[in-house]
Simulated assay, not measured.
Amino acid sequence: MNLNDLNLFIRVVETGSFTAAADSLSVQKSTISRRIAQLEDTLGIRLIQRTTRKLKLTPEGEELFSRAQPLIDDLSAVQDDISATKTELRGRLRLTMPTEIGVFMMNEVISSFMKAYPRIEVDVELSTRTVDLIEEGVDLAFRLGPLPNSSLIARHVAGLHRGLFATPEYIQQHGMPDTPDDLIQHQCITLLKPFDHLRFVNWNNHEPVSMGGRLRTNSLSFVREMILQNMGIGRLPEVFCGPLVESGRIVRVLEGFDLEPLEINALYASRRNLNPRVRAFLDHMSDRLSDHPWVQNKLVHLTH
Rank of each mutant, 00 (worst) to 15 (best):
L152G: 05
H284W: 15
R119E: 12
T96P: 04
S286P: 02
P98R: 03
A269C: 08
G102L: 02
I82A: 09
S221N: 11
R224F: 04
R271W: 06
V251S: 06
D258W: 01
G102I: 03
I250Y: 03
T179Q: 08
R50A: 04
L228M: 12
R67I: 08
M285P: 09
Y268V: 00
P208I: 11
F222N: 07
F281N: 01
S83C: 02
R277G: 00
V131H: 03
D181F: 06
G234V: 12
S66H: 09
C241F: 03
A116S: 14
S30Y: 08
D23C: 04
K86I: 15
Q296N: 13
S151E: 10
G256Y: 04
N2M: 06
P237T: 07
M285S: 06
H197Q: 11
F200S: 00
N297Q: 12
D123T: 10
H284D: 00
R279V: 01
L144D: 01
R199Y: 05
L244E: 14
D139F: 00
Q28L: 12
F113H: 01
I184A: 06
G16H: 12
P146N: 09
V103F: 05
R224E: 11
V253F: 06
R279K: 07
V157W: 10
L274G: 00
T130N: 06
L3V: 04
F65M: 04
H206I: 11
Q79I: 06
N205Q: 15
R155M: 14
N204Q: 13
